[in-house]
Design a protein around this nucleic acid. Structure first.
Lengths: 245, 245
DNA sequence: TACAGTCTTATATAAGACAAAAGATACAAT
DNA sequence: ATTGTATCTTTTGTCTTATATAAGACTGTA
């Protein structure tokens, strides 16, 4: 990290942003496990050559992104469950006891991009893509279905084996194995009817309404890298709202 | 220094949280108009008797809530359009040209809380509620339907007239006319089938999938104040994702 | 054992010094 | 008159230091 005024000038980025990147890289490299505490803010400050307050400002961002969480007087911890779908303000995929979703691989095949998909991912028509399909379970119950599309050019050695080893954190895999560091994109929420394939895989009735999440994840240069779509069973509420009259 | 539970109880909130409340109150009181700049952080610091950094920390929160926005070297401004549905990360209700939704009042009637609704709002069973129903339009097209439920006890003079005058900012009305200052609650996203009432009002087919947003807004003491449910037509995407095979 | 103090270590808050960005102003060159 | 440029002022942005608060571990005592 930055140790001198000269280096600082070269860096051309605020210190706390550099700290964000360093900490993020360390998290993605698995330096600390889920729910394991990071070094204290003071220690991290020493490590990066900045003050506690600067480390704190960096961690603020990662906490807001729910990549980390904090407990006053105790420490700062790596938040569990940081896959695409789970990340962020999304509370649907945890059951009442707070259990996190388990991911089950359904398949990984090589396909060719149609016109629209090619445009979305910034590729030429017919470019090779990996299509990964996974099932999400909470407490054993199927809650959702996820489909990922990744350009083969950027993920050359993607194989079932690597995906199978993946515990759920696609970001980490992308970074460690392919050198692709992903940002989150905006997620669009939609309501759709279950088609025959969705109904079969999710074990619901045909045309049952499903919550659909559509997301395009880009790398830090802004280039699209992963197109992901998820279908989620609608959660039950204690009180089912409806319009009367 | 004597430390006792009594002293602790007396101990004030952190300064920056007090500043948040002061600034929020001023915004809601209309001290500055939309897109009008607030006094500088230094001036606000003098006004509240705190440092610029403390004011800044307070404004950080309001900026994160998109109640304010900032431009370096220029100033801090009041953000427009802060109704429940529009607030936050929710991009569904703006059309491609960025037009904001218009709200059309459908009705406002007095009902009695059922058991579950009473529990949600922290009231006794049968307590009087105002039920407000509104239609959301973008570029004239119907895009959604919203139902609000407010305890009559907290909104004693609620009338059609006042609601009709409302341009869309329920928070401001609650504060100005009823002295109720609202926080946003968590929004739950669900997919539901259109019932007969929803289908008629939204002019869609029966059982068409709709995106449902369910939210409980509380005041700053944590007491539930507004239960809101919205049904939104699903937006069309250029590329309609589906699972094949 | 139960309980109350105290120590240690962590995050949380606050203030102040300084940097960077964006306009505004002044003024010279054309 | 207009254009360009340097500089001044105001505003937000960054960073450090000092101190407060919270949580758990430890310790002595009834």
């Amino acid at each position: 990290m930055i140790k001198s005024a000269y280096m600082k000038k070269l860096a051309a980025q605020p210190l706390y942003k550099q700290v964000i990147r360093e900490v993020m890289a360390a998290v993605e490299a698995g330096e600390w496990q889920e729910d394991e505490s990071l070094p204290s803010e003071v220690e991290l400050g020493q490590r990066f050559g900045v003050s506690q307050g600067t480390v704190r400002k960096a961690l603020d961002v990662l906490v807001a992104d729910s990549i980390l969480y904090r407990r006053q007087g105790v420490g700062t911890f790596v938040a569990g469950m940081s896959d695409f779908l789970m990340r962020g303000r999304f509370a649907l995929l945890t059951d009442p006891k707070g259990e996190t979703a388990k991911i089950e691989l359904l398949g990984c095949v090589r396909i060719h991009a149609g016109e629209q998909l090619a445009e979305i991912l910034g590729l030429r028509r017919g470019a090779a893509l990996w299509q990964v399909r996974r099932l999400l379970r909470v407490s054993g119950q199927i809650v959702g279905l996820e489909e990922l599309l990744l350009p083969e050019a950027n993920f050359p050695e993607l194989e079932m084996r690597r995906i199978r080893e993946l515990k759920g954190n696609l970001r980490e895999l992308c970074w460690r194995d392919f050198g692709v560091r992903l940002q989150d994109g905006e997620t669009r929420y939609r309501a759709v009817s279950a088609g025959s394939a969705e109904a079969r895989l999710l074990q619901v009735e045909l045309n049952e309404p499903l919550l659909q999440l559509v997301r395009l994840a880009k790398d830090f240069s802004g280039k699209p890298q992963v197109w992901s779509v998820a279908w989620l069973k609608t959660e039950q509420l204690a009180f089912e709202p409806s319009v009367t009259g």
